[in-house]
Design a protein around this nucleic acid. Sequence first.
DNA 1: TTGACATATTCCTATATGGGTATATGATGT
DNA 2: ACATCATATACCCATATAGGAATATGTCAA
Lengths: 117, 117
Amino acid sequence: MARAATTADAFNAVAEPRRRQILDVLVGGERPVNDLVRALGVPQPQVSKHLRVLREVGAVEVREEGRRRVYRLNGDALKPIHDWVKPYERAWSERFEQLDDVLEELKEKEDGNGSDE
Amino acid sequence: MARAATTADAFNAVAEPRRRQILDVLVGGERPVNDLVRALGVPQPQVSKHLRVLREVGAVEVREEGRRRVYRLNGDALKPIHDWVKPYERAWSERFEQLDDVLEELKEKEDGNGSDE
DNA sequence: TTGACATATTCCTATATGGGTATATGATGT
DNA sequence: ACATCATATACCCATATAGGAATATGTCAA
C-alpha cells in the first residue's frame, strides 16, 4: 500500500509546508486565490490544487464572489491535531516539569508514611 | 516531485496513524519493540520500520539493553507541531470566542468616540 | 461577441511510500 | 556450537503524490 492520501485527514493535509503556509495566511482573514498566489509566490495551479486538498479535509471553505473565489479558514478541522499533540506539551514545558517535581515530592511523602487513606 | 519524505520532519512523520499510536504508547514510558508489537497488533517488521522513521525525525530514542532495544519518547521533536497548531485554537475554543466578543465590544466603543489618543 | 481576467482541471513524470514476506544480524542460554 | 529469541533490513508492488505546463471553465467589461 502507498502512503495515505493527503486528503485522508488533517494530519496528512498539513504535512505539506505550502498548505500550512496557506492556512497561516488565511488566519489573517479570508482571501481570494490570487492574493494567496501572490503571498506564496507559487504558480496559480499549484495553489488551487493545495486549496482543493484543504477543502477536502474541511480546513478551508469557499465563497463565490463574482469571478473570484474567496477562501476562508475553518480551524475546527485542525482540532484533532491540537488534541493529539497537546499531551506531549509536558515534554518541553517548564511549567509541567515543575508540576512533575511537585508530584514527585508528594509521592515520596506518601511512600514515607505507610498510612493509607 | 513526489511528496516530501516521511522523514523530512515531524509533520510528515506523524501523518501516519500507526506512528502516532506508537508515540501514544511511549508516553506511558519506554518500551522494547516487542511490547509495541503486541500493543499495536502489527507485524514486527512494520513496527521496526515505523520506529526508524520516528528515530530519524528525533521523536524517539533507543537504548540497547541486551538483545532488546528499548525505545523512549522524545517529545521535543513534536514542539513544532504544537507551536504551529496553537494559534488555530481560537477557532474552536469557547474561551477565545468570548475573548473575541470582548474585543469586539471594545472596538465598537472606540469607533464610537472620535477622540484619538 | 470578443478579449481579458480569475480559477480549476488535466496530463505528465519521478519518487517515496506502507504492507507483505523473507532473511540478516546479533545476543542469550545450554 | 547450537537453537532460540529480539530486532532490523532487503525486496517487491500498487499507489498517490507535487511540480510543471497546457488548457478548460466561467465571469466581467466594452
